[in-house]
């Protein structure tokens, strides 16, 4: 196994709400190899975003972290702000769902890009301007020179997301974490942005973590997928495997809840019930109350992740043929 680019080990996050302490992540293990594309899927509140915000130290003082996030041999959990800042943006960049709220509305695009270039590459003046124009051109914005003078509100949602990607590329990072990058965009614009991310990855060999609630988006753009539920990774498998042989009942449930675009129409198989609240998790396996394969043993303890096939892990007591 080659040395992973980033290795998250037993990461836990507790939020202090003032009244109580709520655990949002229950020990997440996730390693990303250089150049690899990993998808993270799950419903709202499952911990997809929190995992990466925690890894990059972006959660603020209300969050208490446990476990390790190893990047180039250093543990980012608990490191000083200066050390985190050397990694954030420079080595690992992150883009978010709503580009227009990530960009500052009162500054021109060129100035915001210039800031990133100054910060990460020490560029200023005409050199920064030329590089900013090159980056905009790189992300497919026509007439880049002129666009540098635009404000975010003068650009469409898709264009603003391109600007965010350009900014993320400013420091030539080794990895990009894209948190629902196309959720706020229309279908045809989503296709453009995903195509752009693919193209950049082909050219730069950058690793990609794609966080999405859409299994289809992840399937087309990553090599491996981690399915999260209630603060845990419940299944981790190569893309081809997860659709052909899902091992966790939650993954199977998600797949049968999705309608198809062609072929015969079938009634959707909904997962009953709702996602549990983080302060009110059921005993044992968090998915047990909604699970079609529930048995008494599920309530004994949260199941550990087991390797059901090469590179395919699932956290279910029935996974791996032990009880099937």
């Amino acid at each position: 196994m080659p040395q992973p680019l980033i290795d998250i080990r037993k990461l836990t996050v507790d939020f202090d709400t003032g009244r109580r302490i709520v655990r949002a992540l229950h020990g997440v293990d996730l390693a990303v190899q250089p150049g690899e594309a990993v998808g993270l899927v799950g419903e709202s509140g499952s911990g997809k975003s929190v995992t990466w915000l925690a890894a990059l130290g972006l959660l603020g003082s209300r969050a208490r972290l446990g476990g390790q996030v190893l990047f180039e041999g250093r543990n980012l959990v608990g490191s000083a702000v200066a050390e985190l800042e050397a990694v954030r943006g420079a080595c690992i960049a992150m883009i978010f769902q709503d580009p227009s709220s990530s960009l500052d509305p009162v500054y021109r695009i060129g100035k915001q890009l210039g800031e990133a270039l100054q910060l990460h590459r020490g560029m200023a003046g005409t050199a920064a301007l030329a590089e900013a124009a090159r980056l905009l051109d790189r992300v497919g914005i026509a007439d880049a020179r002129r666009r540098l003078g635009d404000y975010p509100h003068e650009l469409s949602g898709g264009m603003n997301q391109r600007v965010m990607i350009a900014m993320a590329l400013a420091a030539e990072p080794q990895m990009l974490v894209a948190d629902e990058p196309t959720t706020a965009l229309d279908a045809t614009i989503q296709a453009q942005i995903l195509e752009l991310l693919q193209e950049i990855r082909r050219d730069t060999g950058m690793a990609l973590v794609l966080i999405s609630h859409d299994l289809g988006v992840v399937a087309e753009n990553t090599d491996r997928v981690c399915v999260m539920y209630a603060g845990r990774i419940v299944e981790d498998a190569p893309i081809g495997t997860i659709f052909a042989e899902p091992a966790h009942p939650y993954t199977r449930g998600l797949l049968s809840a999705l309608p198809e675009l062609t072929g015969p129409r079938r009634r959707l198989v909904a997962i009953p019930g709702v996602v549990p609240e983080p302060w009110n998790l059921p005993r044992g396996c968090s998915f047990a109350p909604r699970c079609a394969a529930f048995e008494a043993a599920c309530e004994a303890a949260a199941p550990a992740s087991v390797e059901v096939a090469q590179g395919h892990w699932a956290a279910c007591i029935r996974a791996g043929g032990r009880n099937l």
Binding site: E43, L215, G253, A257, L258, V269, I271, P272
Partner: peptide, 8 residues
């Protein structure tokens, strides 16, 4: 709504 709830 979340995916599992959409189907419901």
């Amino acid at each position: 709504l979340d995916v599992s709830i959409q189907a419901q």
